[in-house]
Design a protein around this nucleic acid. Sequence first.
DNA 1: AAAGTAAATGAAAATACTTTTCATTTGGAT
DNA 2: ATCCAAATGAAAAGTATTTTCATTTACTTT
Lengths: 147, 147
Amino acid sequence: MRLTEREIVAVLRHHHYKITPQRRAVIQTITAVTSHVTPTAIHERTHREHPNIGLVTIYRTLEILARLKLICELHAGDNCPSYTIGTPEHHHHLICSGCGQVIDFTRHDLTKLERDLSAETGFEIKSHVLDFTGFCGSCQKQKHRTT
Amino acid sequence: MRLTEREIVAVLRHHHYKITPQRRAVIQTITAVTSHVTPTAIHERTHREHPNIGLVTIYRTLEILARLKLICELHAGDNCPSYTIGTPEHHHHLICSGCGQVIDFTRHDLTKLERDLSAETGFEIKSHVLDFTGFCGSCQKQKHRTT
DNA sequence: AAAGTAAATGAAAATACTTTTCATTTGGAT
DNA sequence: ATCCAAATGAAAAGTATTTTCATTTACTTT
């Protein structure tokens, strides 16, 4: 279950952010897309419908959405900072090095490990990232071609 | 057990890379440091001893070392791309959002999860990242100060 | 040990990415 | 309908990274 445009708008309103056409456009783009996308990619897509939206606005909107945990930031290899719409449940990633697609999965509980580490190191643990990287089915096949 | 300068140089030689004073200097810096460091930080440190080493050389050397898996890349929050000397064992990170220190830990086996995911999705999984983020002991205290 | 050569280097330019500044516009409260 | 703080776009500034290219150098082959 991913967040909808409607829900995101409601949260923004609740935090007294203005609902501008530009922000709606960004939210629409990001909810419509299934994969993680970079700020530039979001700009390009949004720009099609709203030709006069600036890249700056994308950055500013993403910053707000990330702070409110409405989108999920991904740091990994190429496309380093990229974003996807937040899922209320915490989740992890499975990233294809070939085509860049990202599959989310929720499985796997790390609370015990988290508690142990915290006890040992004195850290107050806030969050974690668990990302697997590899090659999806079709990219595996492509690797065997003699391009 | 972390890699030593000696071992890294041997691997480079084995791959027919030339052992230049600049490369040695970068390797010395990175083996001497316990934390993850950014390319710029590596340059600054190396520059003290070798005042005429260029930042470009740092980038080029890091690229080689990363490709040979002799150093470990970390993508996270600020200091996004940063590096530490590789440990032969696979390891995970515990990152302090306050001061940026990184503690490595080796615990926790994810092979079963990896196998399950692979079976379900058809992915050929190559690697994974497990990073915890939070605040270390002393940064927790600082948070409670009134600046 | 000297010479030859491909690889490596530094400086500068080019490119890419992100943030800041500021004058103008606008959403939404009144 | 009016007002004002918040949001916007354009441009500039600030960073980070990569490319280009003439020069130097580590290492191989004599």
